[in-house]
Design a protein around this nucleic acid. Sequence first.
DNA 1: GACCTAACTTGCATTTTGCAAGTAATTCGG
DNA 2: CCGAATTACTTGCAAAATGCAAGTTAGGTC
Lengths: 136, 136
Amino acid sequence: MFGDRWSLLIIRDLMVRGLRTYREFHRSGEGISTSILANRLRKLESFGIITIEEDATDRRRTNYRLTEKGIDLAPILLELLIWGARHEKTGAPCELIDKMAKNRERVLADARQRWRDRDPTPLLPNFEVSGRDHRG
Amino acid sequence: MFGDRWSLLIIRDLMVRGLRTYREFHRSGEGISTSILANRLRKLESFGIITIEEDATDRRRTNYRLTEKGIDLAPILLELLIWGARHEKTGAPCELIDKMAKNRERVLADARQRWRDRDPTPLLPNFEVSGRDHRG
DNA sequence: GACCTAACTTGCATTTTGCAAGTAATTCGG
DNA sequence: CCGAATTACTTGCAAAATGCAAGTTAGGTC
């Protein structure tokens, strides 16, 4: 799964951008095609990493949520962000990433709590990854 | 690069199994084809993650080594190992992984020092990943 | 009801990977 | 020295995956 580009981007979008719907993922700016997106979401579900829920306000819409198993991937994503900020041109604010690197356990514990409580606030709440912000 | 299955396996083999040569990677049990292996090694080199060195004892052989940038990927690999041990059937000894999880910084600092000193001992020195052990 | 939206599905073109044979340089043993 | 084996790729082609864009179905709004 980590060897699959699209699955990784989906997980990142869930964790780092708080995206939740098919439409949001599709419009996230990464250029994933509809069939691949559908296929990967299904796969992540069958791996037990995400669950699919019906939206409370619109029957057409489905929401994707991280499972416990999926939430346990957060340390990996945080390390990827930190590595990316240090070695690549990601546009991530260096001070923010440095601060997060110094407070890994706090960051992860807070995110875990939120996600368990169904609050999709991203791993780093004030950090915007390239692409449209769904709350903007 | 983390979205590419083969690149990820190569990095894992470098860090977790201490593999260094084309032949070792090719025979590592993962079924990578020769052209893909060659292509990915080149790519990892051009990304600045590994360097290529001639072997001191055999002109046919090349050794691949992690750069500083590559070594900085170790926290990600360690988190992947920990996640894998908890959620997948990896055959990893649970006590070992738990111990490593509790001593992340020590493990990473030790590995970093070794790798800088050109000692390719794996991230977790007594941990064997599935596949042939090159030192066997 | 007409029109739009959300979540896919489908057909086909393009790209990537898998398979196996091949090549060139180097090493080893008789 | 020479033949055989080894090391690190390269190549041609088949198979698999992805990219592109049109299409379908169910749901929502006016």
